[in-house]
Design a protein around this nucleic acid. Sequence first.
DNA 1: CTGAAAGCGCTAACAG
DNA 2: CTGTTAGCGCTTTCAG
Lengths: 342, 342
Amino acid sequence: MTSRNKRPLTLRDVSEASGVSEMTVSRVLRNKGDVSAATRQKVQDAAKRLGYVPNKIAGALASQRVNLVAVIIPSLGNMVFPEVMAGISEVLEDTVLQPVVGVTDYLPEKEEKVLFEMLSWRPSGVIIAGLEHSEASRAMLKQAGIPVVEIMDVDGEPIDACVGISHRRAGRIMAEEIIAAGYKRIGFMGTKMPLDHRARKRFEGFTRTLAQSGIEIADQEFYSGGSALAKGREMTAKMIERTPDLDFLYFSNDMIGAGGLLYLLEKGIDVPGKIGLAAFNGVELLDGLPSQLATMDACRREIGVKAAQIIASYHSGEDTQGGKIVTLSPKLAFGDTLRRRG
Amino acid sequence: MTSRNKRPLTLRDVSEASGVSEMTVSRVLRNKGDVSAATRQKVQDAAKRLGYVPNKIAGALASQRVNLVAVIIPSLGNMVFPEVMAGISEVLEDTVLQPVVGVTDYLPEKEEKVLFEMLSWRPSGVIIAGLEHSEASRAMLKQAGIPVVEIMDVDGEPIDACVGISHRRAGRIMAEEIIAAGYKRIGFMGTKMPLDHRARKRFEGFTRTLAQSGIEIADQEFYSGGSALAKGREMTAKMIERTPDLDFLYFSNDMIGAGGLLYLLEKGIDVPGKIGLAAFNGVELLDGLPSQLATMDACRREIGVKAAQIIASYHSGEDTQGGKIVTLSPKLAFGDTLRRRG
DNA sequence: CTGAAAGCGCTAACAG
DNA sequence: CTGTTAGCGCTTTCAG
């Protein structure tokens, strides 16, 4: 086994091993300033031979520069945030910046704790999901003196910059299409997550728009935990038994929507003839289903890209003003489960 | 917007604001050493009022202690690593340690880079997926002087500690069951991923065992990119057309397996009568499918838990020896798609 | 219980 | 091109 408990090597060790001053060693290792090819070689050899790994802690303290970007998200479990992460990584890979992820589990207290921990490492920027944060969290973010990009949602007051979609509008658009297609008896299924503000806003936009056409949600059901696919299946079964005259089901996420779709298909129920379906998110998974679920793309990757670009451009000295708000437009995919308007 | 470009507060600011020495402020903020209730209060008030966030960089440099655990995994995209992460977080949450994730995309060069970056922050431990690493990576890990736990796999030579399952054995067990159930014409589908060593080992264990019974893979197909569910569907369609006498399909992961299952069900093909199916991983998703795919659980959460426990117990002073190897046993679930032996 | 001094390992800013 | 001198903001250690 490896011997735990060894003193890590320092610049000084490399300096002694190569017979070059610490300062010059530092220059070589950072590719900073002019160093003769000969010394450069000596230093690199020594560093490699010893297996020297620079101490970023000391470096960061001395230079007052930390090339880390804090990314704070509610969960890694549902495929939406990994896609945002992919967008972030993609753009940060071309810079010196590195993302560091913190997970909040949709808990404000945990968000506060994670944020505090991350800020105490003095990152160069923060990308954080949502616009709803505790007072303490907002205060920390304001105090931090670094660019802050709130992502996913634009319905609210950003602290600094903001990239996302309007979930209220997403809910509204979906409702409009459903109404336009002539559906009238609509059931809703979603998560039992009072703290998922984006799901809540979609629901609000949805119900409000229905109400304007005099339609009210005919039935609804909420779940928590477990396999979303299985839950979608169960909830759908329960709901169409309880309220047999439903002609449309709106799901708050694609996974439960897929479960519902599979169930209806299995029962031989005519979709979208007898009953229409729609969900939200546009997860890639859906491509493999027997029929295409209507859904709305939340622009996840793009959100990650834009957010990272804001941080990167600030870091590189451009865009010193901040406060930018980027509103993306989710795209509606009718798929096979939502009739076109008319 | 928030004013970017502010000097962050220091201990000294809190010290001045509270009229207490820096040292005592530090003691209060870390809950270390005895401080009178009165001064404690003064300090806490000042810190809160100013919105002071301690600088961990300086703290870590001074104390030579960093409560970070580097977790290095190939990808966040397939649900297996988020589950490992959940296990890790669960146990680290009861300690002062914090996980920090790095993603390698199954690329050895990227692994090397990520590892170097993370080690340069001098973490208290490393949890890294797989037993295959570049020479440079192995050297760094050995030099680091901290506990290293390689996870997921136990077929190989660990650097230090190791927690996982034997993928060769997993492949063998599956092959044995398939043979015992009387299947003879077996097709294989998997990822086109020469660098996914665990998938490769399962395949090796699988084919080797079949060979011992004089059976050879009758057809095989590999994919990369795209929606795994859709790919499973496509590959299955293609394969049963190309090799119509297949009586079993073994998929290297559950997502493509689910795609295959949905396809066969849709075509009205008798599963497992005419054709049996099995996959690998036991993702929760499968619960919602119309019929249960035979699969093998990779003990992901448990792997995360055990790995984190090893790091934590070393950090807290117990278990100073290292080199522990924990072999977990994957559980076979027959589901509805694999006949029992006999 | 509280404070003063001395670094942690590195880099900015100057000198040569 | 190379070296020297001061810290970065905190904690350790040792005195009160």
